[in-house]
């Protein structure tokens, strides 16, 4: 069937836009790998870099897995950094008694924060980006109080898990679970349906409130994993722990082509490509010995370009 109000030109640009959304991130990944491989003099793809790369991959892919469900609904979590920080702090404190208890405490703390975010958005009906931004102040404030402005050392036994194999293994497991739940479960589909048009799943009998609440718990759970990871790497919780978590997650998803507005164009493969691009960029910038200021400058430019390509303009009210 034809689309009567769409001109050929518009249809063409729509099509090429879709192709852009699929191919550009992939070409981007290849370009970035080649670019950094050359500029770092082959350091990027060397066995020596494997361990360093695992850290960057962890920090971009795991939060992206957490944020995917929210972003597919067109929602956002700006409090991820705060959640990582506060649950790492709690974990460091409890780890003095026992590590398993510390892990339970980290997950519990994070889930409580996630529940607060979800409740503020779903029940108080505050837009998610405002609710979570406000909450992020609360969480980092609370973490600072607990840390007394300094840093807390955790049980050094955490260090035992700091192996490359363990980290890659964890990334793979988390990705696999996310992939299955997001792509094949009714819940994952409900998330995308809500992103497409929330009234439709509501009238189709989906418990929309629940489906909007749970993704906040998922993003918080990803934060808990990142908090554990932070303790494993450095055995320390500080005010800077978890910094930039949501930026990493958001960038990874946007770079991979998940539209800001969510919906059925949100795909898991975007997460893999975007997560890898992010990891390669941050790893590459580190290998280039760039200053933090320069690193941020470059990240900012990449962010703007990614949004320009992926932002779904058809959801803004324009006459076709």
């Amino acid at each position: 069937m034809k689309a009567p109000t769409l001109t050929k030109k518009q249809e063409g640009s729509k099509l090429s836009k879709e192709i852009l959304g699929t191919i550009v991130p992939f070409l981007g990944l290849i370009f970035i790998i080649v670019f950094f491989q050359v500029t770092t003099g082959g350091k990027l793809l060397s066995p020596n870099n494997l361990k360093t790369f695992s850290n960057y991959a962890f920090q971009s892919i795991v939060p992206a897995c957490g944020l995917l469900f929210l972003m597919s609904q067109g929602e956002m979590d700006f409090s991820m950094a705060g959640i990582v920080c506060i649950s790492a702090t709690v974990g460091a404190m409890v780890s003095k008694t026992s590590i398993p208890m510390a892990i339970v405490a980290i997950i519990a703390t994070a889930l409580v924060m996630g529940a607060i975010n979800g409740a503020a958005h779903v029940f108080l009906r505050v837009p998610s980006f405002i609710a979570t931004m406000a909450a992020s102040f609360m969480y980092s404030g609370l973490a600072s109080v607990l840390l007394g402005g300094g840093a807390l050392t955790a049980n050094y036994d955490f260090k035992k898990a700091d192996t490359t194999i363990f980290k890659y293994g964890a990334i793979l497991v988390i990705m696999l679970v996310t992939y299955i739940v997001f792509t094949y479960s009714p819940f994952g589909k409900h998330c995308r349906a809500i992103g497409a048009k929330a009234e439709v799943p509501f009238q189709a009998g989906v418990n929309v409130k629940m489906a909007k609440f749970v993704p906040f718990l998922i993003s918080a759970f990803a934060c808990a994993i990142l908090a554990i990871f932070a303790l494993v790497r450095s055995c320390t919780a500080a005010t800077t722990t978890g910094a930039n978590t949501q930026v990493n997650a958001m960038l990874a998803l946007l770079l991979g082509g998940v539209p800001f507005s969510g919906g059925w164009n949100s795909r898991f493969r975007s997460l893999i490509i975007g997560g890898l691009i992010m990891a390669v960029i941050t790893n590459g910038l580190f290998l280039l010995n760039l200053s933090t200021a320069n690193q941020q400058l470059i990240k900012g430019v990449i962010f703007i370009v990614a949004v320009a390509i992926s932002f779904d303009r058809k959801n803004t009210a324009v006459i076709k």
């Binding site: 349906a193 799943p201 189709a204 919906g263």
Partner: peptide
């Protein structure tokens, strides 16, 4: 506005209440 997700496929729309 209420019955269909126009930015969704025929499949996704038909399957929604039947997931």
């Amino acid at each position: 506005t209420e019955a269909l997700m126009s930015a969704g496929s025929v499949k996704d729309n038909i399957c929604l209440p039947n997931l």
